[in-house]
């Protein structure tokens, strides 16, 4: 079981190129999870105990408003990761994440990952670099979204 998880994990762009010893470290925190369409991965305000690596499917990041219901901010799919609130205090989700389609993820336990990153800071730095790349892409995309490029100029 662990071995096959490792195989799946190394194929994911987020993990790609990570040293084998680091991979075996994080595999210890991992499990396979499937979300049916409509199921929430997590909801705003809940404790953020997980880091999700999407293998397939589609997840919507949403925020709920009483008048408008749930508003989708962004959708994420195969190859993306979800959630870094497990890494930053107070370790609480700031948004909802809902599976739009049948979604297969590898869920890494946040506490487990955090402590392994603390113990082996070279792993911690690797994870941080990869997350920084994700932040960079998400922020760029978000800035473009803010520009409302296709709106009336």
């Amino acid at each position: 079981m662990i071995e096959s998880l490792e195989k799946v994990l190394v194929q994911h762009p987020f993990v790609e190129g990570l040293k084998p010893e680091h991979i075996s470290l994080i595999v210890g925190c991992a499990k396979n999870v499937v979300f049916e369409p409509g199921k929430y991965l997590f909801k705003e305000g809940e404790d953020a105990n997980s880091f999700y690596i999407i293998r397939s499917g589609k997840v919507a990041l949403e925020v709920y408003s009483p008048e408008k219901g749930s508003i989708i901010i962004q959708t994420l799919d195969e190859g993306d990761i979800i959630g870094w609130s497990w890494m930053v205090p107070p370790y609480q989700w700031k948004f909802d994440a809902r599976a739009v389609e049948l979604t297969r993820v590898i869920e890494l336990d946040g506490n487990c990952l955090r402590s392994k990153c603390e113990d082996d800071q070279s792993l911690g730095y690797e994870i941080m670099k990869r997350l920084a790349n994700v932040f960079d892409n998400r922020i760029s995309a978000m800035r473009m979204q803010l520009l409302d490029l296709f709106g009336k100029s």
């Binding site: 589609k58 919507a60 989708i72 901010i73 190859g79 892409n137 995309a141 473009m144 979204q145 490029l149």
Partner: peptide, 20 residues
């Protein structure tokens, strides 16, 4: 760029579709 209620498709700028 902006979803409305009932939209089940992708949300995000078009450039995010390119990597995959």
């Amino acid at each position: 760029d902006r979803a409305i209620k009932g939209w089940t498709g992708n949300v995000g700028v078009v450039t995010t579709l390119i990597p995959r």
